[in-house]
């Protein structure tokens, strides 16, 4: 009894095939997925899918782009499921259900300067937002993209970054925590890049994704510069078993990260971020 998509239970995945694979770093790949049957999953930037590796488990993974009709997911191998996805080859199949979550909501800020700050794999869910702004340049103000990584070989989307850096209508800066001697770019934390780009704090929307401690540091610096806390959006991560607000695992204070987030205005979560173990 394999029912059509709209009749099936909310925890039932559909089958997707890996159309292509690109290696990003030693532990990270980008896979393009197509459904075996039925429609493609349509995700807004910032939304995510639940990816199921046969018999192993299911994990939330953000959409990192669209390519020729395929959904892109960029996955860092850290455990059993992400390792299985990392090991996949073209033609392999996975279960997938989505879209989940709310998205970055850039459309709520027409004309605003857009400041994007990414740490590590946090660039994955921001990539489609960057591409969106670049594709609709006239709808937005200044675009700044600040990217931090622990070392040059951990930098994902290097081709994309080079392409973004070549644009005259975007300020794209990369920094490395600890750089080898041949690194010619900036060295230091991603927060140190903030003063190096120009944006109007009063009319800027900031999209931030990375480790919680980094997002807190970025938000604090931006607020000091005069960016309002409701104009700063951060993408939260919590354990998730269902993505539909049933399993309870992703609670962050009153929020269910899966359905109320994963993107939150900083204003809404600021007090929670200051308490340990929420």
């Amino acid at each position: 009894m394999v029912g059509p998509a709209d009749m099936s239970g909310p925890m039932t995945p559909r089958i997707f095939r890996v159309a292509s694979k690109r290696r990003e770093t030693a532990d990270t790949v980008t896979l393009a997925f197509d459904p075996l049957e039925g429609p493609q999953i349509e995700l807004r930037p910032g939304q995510f899918d639940m990816l199921y590796a046969f018999g192993i488990g299911e994990v939330p993974i953000s959409m990192s782009g669209m390519s020729e009709g395929s959904v892109l997911h960029t996955v860092r191998a850290v455990g059993a499921v992400t390792r299985a996805i990392y090991d996949a080859g073209e033609g392999d199949v996975f279960g997938m259900r989505g879209p989940y979550g709310n998205g970055w909501g850039l459309e709520d800020h027409p004309g605003a300067d857009v400041l994007i700050v990414a740490g590590g794999i946090g660039l994955a869910p921001l990539r489609p937002a960057i591409e969106h702004v670049l594709a609709h340049r006239e709808l937005h103000g200044k675009l700044s993209v600040l990217i931090g990584a622990r070392s040059p070989e951990l930098l994902i989307f290097q081709d994309d970054i080079a392409r973004w850096q070549a644009r005259l209508d975007a300020q794209v800066r990369v920094t490395i925590d600890v750089a080898p001697s041949e690194w010619r770019g900036a060295v230091g934390l991603v927060t140190e890049l903030i003063p190096r780009v120009s944006f109007d704090p009063g009319r800027t929307v900031a999209l931030v994704c990375g480790p919680e401690i980094m997002m807190r540091a970025v938000a604090t610096d931006l607020m000091d510069l005069g960016v309002a806390s409701d104009q700063i959006r951060i993408s939260m991560e919590r354990n998730m078993k269902c993505a539909i607000g049933h399993c309870g695992h992703c609670q962050f204070g009153p929020e269910f990260v899966c359905k109320d987030g994963p993107i939150f205005p900083y204003e809404r979560v600021e007090s929670l971020m200051r308490v340990r173990e929420v």
């Binding site: 394999v2 239970g9 039932t12 089958i15 046969f54 199949v93």
Partner: peptide, 18 residues
Amino acid sequence: LLWKARRSSGAFEVEEAA
């Protein structure tokens, strides 16, 4: 039991538990 899945010819099928 939410569902069962069975591998078949390079893919797999998911059968929902009624």
